[in-house]
Simulated assay, not measured.
Amino acid sequence: MTSTRRPAAVLALAQGRTTGQAAKSAGVSGRTILRWLDEPSFHQEVTDARTELLHLAVGRLAAASTKAVDALVDALDNERGQARVQAARTLLDACLALRESLDLEQRLAALETAENDQEGRR
């Protein structure tokens, strides 16, 4: 009984629902949810489920991003005035944000490599 209810509670909490909402969707009491949350393994299950949901969302965003860019580029070519300016701003903002993200990722990787090298020398 608990084995089928616990995953439902994990999913509900990972999706950002309250403990009361998670209890209702899992068919358990709110006290049960609070008791489970005191268990490090349950807390880790919620964290892992949330991470997986975020990975799925990022994958869907990445898949849709080419359509979004195509629409913006089309607006640059076919729209007038304010819509065209807004499309250009959106594209430039996205490019800058992506560039910053990639730079940060590279810097973090370099720091991790340097830290690993130092630990290897000890």
Results as ranks from 00 to 15, higher is better:
residue 56 L to Y: 12
residue 56 L to I: 11
residue 56 L to H: 15
residue 57 A to H: 15
residue 57 A to Y: 15
residue 58 V to A: 13
residue 58 V to P: 00
residue 58 V to R: 04
residue 58 V to C: 03
residue 58 V to Y: 06
residue 59 G to A: 12
residue 59 G to P: 01
residue 60 R to H: 09
residue 60 R to S: 03
residue 60 R to Q: 14
residue 60 R to K: 11
residue 61 L to D: 15
residue 61 L to P: 02
residue 61 L to H: 13
residue 62 A to E: 12
residue 63 A to Y: 10
residue 64 A to M: 12
residue 64 A to P: 02
residue 65 S to R: 14
residue 65 S to T: 07
residue 66 T to H: 14
residue 67 K to E: 15
residue 67 K to F: 10
residue 68 A to F: 02
residue 68 A to V: 03
residue 69 V to Q: 10
residue 69 V to Y: 04
residue 69 V to W: 03
residue 69 V to G: 07
residue 69 V to K: 07
residue 70 D to S: 12
residue 71 A to V: 02
residue 72 L to R: 00
residue 74 D to K: 06
residue 74 D to P: 01
residue 74 D to N: 13
residue 75 A to K: 04
residue 75 A to E: 07
residue 75 A to Q: 04
residue 76 L to V: 02
residue 76 L to F: 06
residue 76 L to C: 05
residue 77 D to E: 14
residue 77 D to N: 12
residue 77 D to S: 10
residue 78 N to W: 06
residue 78 N to F: 07
residue 78 N to A: 09
residue 78 N to C: 10
residue 79 E to F: 05
residue 79 E to I: 02
residue 79 E to Q: 09
residue 80 R to I: 03
residue 80 R to G: 06
residue 81 G to K: 01
residue 81 G to D: 01
residue 82 Q to K: 11
residue 82 Q to W: 07
residue 83 A to Y: 06
residue 83 A to T: 03
residue 84 R to F: 05
residue 84 R to N: 06
residue 85 V to P: 00
residue 86 Q to I: 03
residue 86 Q to P: 01
residue 87 A to L: 00
residue 87 A to Q: 01
residue 88 A to F: 02
residue 89 R to N: 11
residue 89 R to Y: 12
residue 89 R to E: 11
residue 90 T to M: 09
residue 91 L to R: 00
residue 91 L to K: 00
residue 91 L to D: 02
residue 91 L to S: 03
residue 91 L to C: 03
residue 93 D to C: 08
residue 94 A to G: 12
residue 96 L to I: 05
residue 96 L to H: 10
residue 97 A to E: 14
residue 97 A to L: 13
residue 98 L to H: 10
residue 99 R to K: 13
residue 100 E to H: 06
residue 100 E to L: 09
residue 100 E to N: 08
residue 100 E to T: 06
residue 101 S to W: 08
residue 101 S to D: 08
residue 101 S to P: 00
residue 102 L to C: 08
residue 102 L to I: 04
residue 102 L to K: 05
residue 102 L to D: 14
residue 102 L to N: 09
residue 103 D to P: 00
residue 103 D to L: 13
residue 104 L to I: 07
residue 104 L to T: 11
residue 104 L to C: 13
residue 104 L to N: 15
residue 105 E to T: 07
residue 105 E to G: 12
residue 106 Q to I: 03
residue 106 Q to S: 12
residue 106 Q to P: 01
residue 107 R to K: 08
residue 108 L to Y: 08
residue 108 L to E: 13
residue 108 L to S: 12
residue 108 L to D: 13
residue 109 A to M: 06
residue 109 A to Q: 09
residue 110 A to L: 04
residue 110 A to H: 03
residue 110 A to I: 00
residue 111 L to W: 07
residue 111 L to D: 15
residue 111 L to A: 15
residue 112 E to C: 04
residue 112 E to W: 04
residue 113 T to W: 09
residue 113 T to L: 13
residue 113 T to R: 14
residue 114 A to W: 01
residue 115 E to C: 11
residue 115 E to W: 13
residue 115 E to G: 11
residue 116 N to W: 08
residue 116 N to T: 04
residue 116 N to Q: 14
